[in-house]
Design a protein around this nucleic acid. Structure first.
Lengths: 250, 250
DNA sequence: TGTATGCGTTATGTATACAATAACGGAGGG
DNA sequence: CCCTCCGTTATTGTATACATAACGCATACA
């Protein structure tokens, strides 16, 4: 007990979960590698009970995979797994947009999204976009998607979208980070922003089908760009999370 | 240790999870009710560690809700939550059908689905359908949906659909059970069967859009019928799981 | 030399003791 | 009579000891 330092500000379970997720995403733990509880106890500083809890939660998140005989290993993703995850998320967000449009959204509820939109416009005005601005973009974009999801007012759907976004490469920010390695990044972002604009418009005019269609197109664009980015793979080292991907289909 | 009986054939964690799920679904625990670990220890016969594990897993399943200050409570669902869950699942299955159609499926892979289809046809030929036949239908229908999902060959999507089906009322069998209370049940089942037939045909002919559309229509039909079933609510007592629903929007 | 079996090591699964914290109730003061 | 504060109690969070099953290695036998 003398040497173990305890941070009492957050629960040990959460602490362990964050630490382990960091290790996975940063590449300290390689895909396919078995993750031992004892080892996790040493690296996270928590005891076995919260560590085990964290492992179960990370499995649910999709970062770990349960080994039949017991224990967990870091999950490996193929290129197709990733593009499917993006499309999956787009489909879910499309449904959210449709729900929002069909169920009606007040002008006041739309306000935060429009602010997001304007802020992103402001950023994209820079040519070329700075690294700082890009980082702001990632945050704003994630916020836009989260707010849009909320507008569906459907707890089950929101829950499912949150889960689908847990995989870093499936989330819009993850996708955008991958894009940043592309020379055409800014152009892509401008198209994406156009999508955002159309969705808002469709929701405002209660055109459910159109709102859904554009969100799905948005995701399909992301998939195309991911493929592009994976082709000139050298750029991808920028993003530790993506660097972890095992392209099983090579 | 003397009085606690230990069943060594299955893990305590699984045992506790099954026992707790039973309690929730059977109505022993009411929605909104807090579920204490100690109490769960007594009713399941497992100790606190596996019980806690089971609670976390049931939360992920969507049957429990975490209380901010700690602990879990049985989740309550509104009528809209349920219809959204059904539509959500239909959307996901639509994507699966599209993937299957676009990616191509061999005749051999389609065989089990066609067998399912034929078996269901056989059942529906009875007028009126017997209780036993109905129970067989539930099984066959679940199998059909599961097999169809598999054809997408997309692990992330399959995973997500499995999760979306965890809620009993969102799964096809759960929906069908609700339908069974309706006088028009058999007619509805025949229409559903027609949907199944069209999906197979669309996949065979690699028509992704059509495959997707029919699965979504399938779900929308389910939602309509759920609404119908909820109107003559007395019938619903047949199904303990559905009886638990708190219609927040009453 | 190859295979099978048994033992030892290591990891996970389980139980329980202990600590901390949040909920509840009662008593005292305003 | 109500509000507030403090103490008690119950419940969760954490740590760790113990049981059990899996894995690997070595040795012996075919």
């Amino acid at each position: 007990m003398a040497e173990r330092e305890i941070d009492r500000s957050v629960s040990q379970t959460v602490k362990a979960q964050l630490a382990l997720r960091d290790q996975i995403l940063s590449g300290s733990l390689r895909p396919g590698e078995r993750i031992s509880e004892l080892q996790a106890v040493e690296t996270t500083g928590a005891s076995r009970t919260p560590v085990r809890m964290a492992l179960v939660r990370l499995e649910e998140e999709g970062l770990l995979e349960a080994i039949p005989s017991g224990g967990f290993m870091v999950k490996a993703f193929s290129e197709r797994d990733i593009s499917d995850s993006i499309e999956l998320r787009g489909t879910l967000e499309g449904l959210a947009a449709r729900f929002a449009a069909e169920r009606g959204v007040s002008a006041r509820e739309l306000e935060p999204l429009k602010e997001c939109l304007a802020a992103i416009d402001e950023l994209l005005r820079q040519v070329p976009i700075s690294v700082d601005a890009f980082s702001s973009y990632v945050t704003l974009n994630a916020r836009f998607h989260a707010q849009l999801t909320e507008l569906s007012r459907s707890p089950p759907l929101i829950r499912q979208i949150d889960r689908a976004s847990a995989l870093p490469f499936a989330s819009p920010s993850g996708f955008v980070m991958a894009q940043s390695a592309l020379p055409e990044a800014q152009q892509i972002l401008i198209i994406a922003q156009e999508h955002h604009r159309v969705v808002i418009d469709a929701i405002e005019n209660r055109e459910g089908a159109r709102a859904e269609a554009v969100m799905r197109e948005h995701a399909r664009l992301a998939v195309r760009n991911l493929r592009l980015a994976l082709r000139n793979r050298t750029h991808l080292d920028l993003l530790p999370a993506l660097a972890l991907i095992k392209t099983a289909t090579d």
